[in-house]
Simulated assay, not measured.
Amino acid sequence: MHLFLGFIFSYISSVGFAMLFSSPKRAIKFSALAGAIGFLIYNIAGDLIGGVFLPILLGAYVTGILGEIFARVFHMPAILFIIPGIINLVPGKGIYNTLFYFVDNQKSLAFTNLFETLVTASAISFGILLASSISKSLMGFKFRKPSKKYDWRKKK
């Protein structure tokens, strides 16, 4: 049940951020779908694997791949789909707690939260980078049919 609610709420929050960033109307639902699927992958990986880095990395990677696919399908920049979709994975609570503990002069808790926040942010950036680099490397790849003019298998 928590996976279904997480999917719905992440979809709604991605729609809100896509509208906040003035995305085109036809891109809003697909960027929200990419964000909701990425958040679902993050939750499933968190339940199965645990930890901080790998679930966030997988969620960001899936969101990035879906953003790149939607960008190719709709002939729009990939950032229109990736940024609203990735918002669900951003460690807002970790940043808040880090600053709160620094202000409250609890340095050990502040550095612990700072480390977790930096790990989460680096996992997000690495997941997007990985998805983007794979997409860029496949951009020039095309399936070509063999030419009928010349068949190299036939001997003359």
Rank of each mutant, 00 (worst) to 15 (best):
L3H: 14
L3P: 08
L3N: 11
L3V: 03
F9D: 11
S14K: 07
V15Y: 14
A18M: 08
A18C: 10
L20R: 13
S23P: 15
K29Q: 14
S31R: 07
A32H: 09
L33A: 07
A34L: 09
G35M: 04
G35C: 05
I37C: 12
F39H: 07
L40V: 04
I41S: 03
N43V: 06
D47C: 14
L48V: 06
V52P: 14
F53V: 02
P55I: 04
I56N: 04
L58S: 00
G59Y: 14
T63A: 01
G64I: 12
G64Q: 01
G64T: 13
L66I: 06
G67L: 01
F70W: 02
R72T: 04
H75F: 05
M76C: 11
M76N: 08
P77R: 02
A78T: 15
I79R: 01
L80M: 10
G85S: 05
I86E: 07
L89I: 10
V90C: 07
P91T: 03
K93T: 12
G94R: 04
Y96I: 08
V103T: 04
V103Y: 14
D104E: 11
D104S: 11
Q106I: 04
Q106Y: 10
A110T: 05
G127H: 11
G127P: 09
S133M: 02
S135E: 01
S137I: 06
S137F: 02
S137M: 00
K142G: 00
R144M: 00
P146G: 03
S147A: 13
K148A: 09
K149T: 03
R153I: 00
K154D: 04
K155T: 06
